[in-house]
Design a protein around this nucleic acid. Structure first.
Length: 469
RNA sequence: GCCCCCAUCGUCUAGCCCGGUCCAGGACACCGCCCUUUCAAGGCGGAGAUCGCGGGUUCGAAUCCCGCUGGGGGUGCCA
């Protein structure tokens, strides 16, 4: 059975790059009817927090990723200790008593000479007696993995193809810190092996780690899984997407009123495209069906907020159900201090869903439907102060009284009559109505407003405008 | 510095494995027109890539080979 996993460390909000990695790993597992594991990599006690972990889970769920198994590395230290001991016993690892200061000095010297730094491996040479003596003294030590000399590790990456790395490029590396906590390169192997992970799908920044990990797999007699390294996501300036590029966490987009389906869909299109089709809109189920690692691009992609926006708009106007739209719109309305009956919101959105691309933008655009009193822009004021405007509004009110109810159809008829009777351009009539009704010179169609808003409310706004100008 | 990865319109990409149908297709953004009471949305059309550069191989190369350049990533008792 295929088993993939997503293994984030809880040191911040879910980053877009990580989200895409999670999505690909998830899609791959589901496509093969396999298992998808979520593993929290919190071995670094300094930077990991419970709060971030909760956010992470929340964001993942929001995106629509369900996992079959869940682990937390901080709860598995006993297991890691056991395997560290195993490596010590079978001679693949050794205690190292070098201090951080000593290592720092070595590194500086290497740099000064312009030669690439790697740990000298001098603690490899310590005799049993020396080790015992140091331990009795209570001298702190790390455990290092013994990297075999001259070895070239070759592996077939499912996305990049054959990759070979000379192991001499890095020295013996630490697998257990002096405080007893295990390091990433070590635990990742233990966990993936024990959890039966068959496909390690992760960012390409892990390529340099892979040979180290393969060495550990071998030293422990574990079967080496398949690897797939995804290209990174870049910002507009072509450097790795990071905080200084602005909104880069899933949470940011959620708060701006993006839909998880749209973000999911967009992220899939970054570095992957489905075979034999020019479609771009896909449901999660379709993506599961279509996704193949072979079709993932091997070059990095620049994140485009513009295109995400567009895609979100497509979801709002074409893909999502009206009910869903209403459901998600409500909290955004409330966040702006506005409120309305669900049915009313439904009526509004039914007619206007094709005119905005994020929920936040939607609330802004549709405010006029929900506020008690509109505020007038400078342009609207100068228009309403015009004598013609007064005549239009008065005539409109007068005619409105003769009608039982108001609608888009009715307002069109009335506008036409007014235009004729006052000998004005259609434009002028409409502009005046809009200004009095919305306080702005642009926005949602006046006919739509009259279709949706109660007649009394329309009258009230016009009366108020008339009274003010 | 050293190691690894990558390279098609501004951006995401199709095509590359199995060379001719590609004087390179689609999408976002951009420009114009139409629709129209405005802004969007929508419809139609346009511009935009000598396939990073230079050498080969071949009757023929975006597609195969070599070199160069550029970009990205890594180089921790972070993950």
């Amino acid at each position: 059975m295929v088993v993939s996993r997503f293994a984030p460390s809880p040191t911040g909000y879910l980053h877009l790059g990580n989200a895409r990695t999670a999505i690909f790993a998830y899609l791959f597992a589901r496509h093969h009817r396999g298992k998808f594991i979520l593993r929290i990599e919190d071995t670094d006690r300094e930077r990991s927090t419970k709060e971030f972990e909760e956010m992470l889970l929340e964001d993942l769920k929001w995106l629509g990723l369900e996992w079959d198994e869940f682990y937390r590395q901080s709860e598995r230290f006993d297991i890691y200790r056991e395997y560290a001991q195993k490596l010590l016993d079978n001679g693949h690892a050794y205690p190292c008593f070098c201090t951080v200061e000593e290592l720092e000095k070595e590194r500086e010297e290497a740099e000064k000479k312009g030669i690439p730094y790697r740990y000298s491996g001098k603690c490899r040479l310590l005799s049993k007696e020396e080790v015992e003596a140091f331990k009795r003294e209570g001298k702190p030590f790390t455990i290092r993995f013994k990297v075999p000399d001259g070895r070239v590790v070759v592996f077939e990456d499912l996305i990049k193809g054959a990759i070979s790395i000379k192991v001499d490029d890095f020295g013996d590396f630490v697998i257990v810190r002096s405080d007893g906590s295990p390091t990433y390169n070590f635990v990742v192997v233990i966990d993936d092996a024990l959890m039966g992970v068959t496909h390690v799908i992760r960012g390409e920044d892990h390529i340099p780690n892979t040979p180290k990990q393969i060495l550990i797999y071998e030293a422990l007699g574990f079967q080496v899984p398949k690897f797939a390294h995804l290209p990174v996501i870049l910002g507009e300036d072509r450097s790795k997407l990071s905080k200084r590029h602005g909104a880069v966490s899933v949470r940011n987009y959620r708060e701006e009123g993006y839909f998880p389906e749209a973000l999911f869909n967009y992220l899939c299109l970054l570095g992957w495209s489905p075979p034999n089709t020019e479609r771009e809109i896909f449901s999660k189920e379709e993506l599961i069906e279509l996704f193949r690692l072979e079709d993932v691009n091997s070059s990095p992609a620049v994140f485009s907020k513009e295109k995400l926006r567009w895609l979100n708009g497509v979801y709002i106007r074409e893909v999502l159900s009206l009910d869903r739209l209403v459901e998600e719109f409500m909290p955004f309305l409330e966040r702006e201090g506005l409120s309305a009956e669900k049915d009313y919101v439904r009526k509004v959105l039914e007619k206007t869903r094709d005119s905005f691309e994020t929920l936040k933008e939607g609330v802004e655009r549709l405010k006029v439907f929900f506020v008690e009193e509109v505020s007038y822009s400078q342009e609207a004021i100068s228009l309403l102060e015009n004598e013609n405007s007064r005549r239009v509004l008065e005539l409109f009110l007068h005619k409105l009284q003769e009608r039982d109810n108001l609608s888009g159809q009715v307002v069109k008829e009335l506008a036409k009559e007014i235009q004729k009777e006052l000998n004005l351009k259609a434009k002028d009539v409409w502009h005046t109505l809009r200004a009095s009704l919305t306080g702005e010179l642009e926005g949602v169609g006046v006919d739509i407003i009259c279709d949706v808003m109660p007649k009394e409310k329309v009258i009230k706004r016009i009366v108020r405008a008339l009274g003010r100008f």
